[in-house]
């Protein structure tokens, strides 16, 4: 699923400060944490309250769609848009772009920073980046652990010398705390050993075909 992080309220408000009526559009698709009707309503109310406090009231409405990443799915928003002069999308960066494409007369602003394709261990729990959509999956060779994503350097022949006690050399800030991720290649080594396939760990992998991930891609 696509993991997003809500932008600060100040930033969202600043992006629509010149509007009079704004439609907040949630997405019931893969965006996580959930960014559907309830979240659209909460954000719309917060922005409306803030605009009143600032003395420049904005009328905020809200709705949601099944998925914002499909022109057809967002095609029936016309009625809700009505006379709105701005929209805010709670979807990932794809949704924001689709709303701008399907409704070019209204400028849609993002409410989220799109973070990564990831997973969570429990619902609403911590989220982890798992896939970079590199277009050349080698999970069958690495015991189901992606080094392209989960190794900070994306090495195909790891680990590097920075792997200490199974941890990556690179400290990462997570919610204000500095943590060190597990070294992906350390995990791959142990997984390969468990599967009795150390030959796969030992194998030299030639450089990646970066052309497969040349953006913007089409299928």
């Amino acid at each position: 699923m696509i993991i997003t992080k809500e932008k600060p309220l100040e930033e969202i408000y600043a992006s629509i400060a010149d509007c009079k009526k704004v439609l907040f559009v949630g997405c019931d698709g893969c965006t996580q944490p959930p960014r559907g009707l309830k979240e659209a309503e909460t954000l719309a109310k917060l922005v409306e309250m803030k605009s009143k406090m600032e003395g420049k009231p904005i009328e905020c409405r809200f709705t949601t769609v099944v998925k914002q990443c499909c022109d057809e799915s967002v095609g029936n928003l016309r009625v809700q848009i009505g006379d709105c002069d701005g929209m805010v999308s709670l979807a990932c960066g794809v949704g924001v772009q689709i709303l701008n494409k399907v409704y070019p007369e209204i400028w849609t602003r993002p409410a989220q920073n799109t973070m990564f394709i990831g997973s969570e261990e429990i619902r609403q729990g911590p989220m982890y980046e798992m896939c970079l959509a590199c277009g050349d999956c080698i999970l069958e060779e690495t015991g189901g652990i992606c080094p392209v994503t989960r190794c900070a350097k994306g090495l195909l022949n790891g680990p590097c010398g920075g792997c200490v006690e199974g941890k990556c050399e690179l400290p990462m800030e997570v919610n204000g705390e500095m943590v060190k991720n597990d070294c992906a290649w350390y995990l791959i080594y142990h997984r390969a050993k468990e599967l009795n396939r150390l030959d796969l760990f030992r194998k030299y992998r030639p450089p990646k075909k970066r052309a497969l991930a040349m953006n913007p891609r089409r299928l």
Partner: peptide
């Protein structure tokens, strides 16, 4: 960060 190649691939 670039890391287009890793050290083994640079040797290659």
């Amino acid at each position: 960060p670039v890391f287009d190649l890793d050290s083994a691939q640079l040797v290659d």
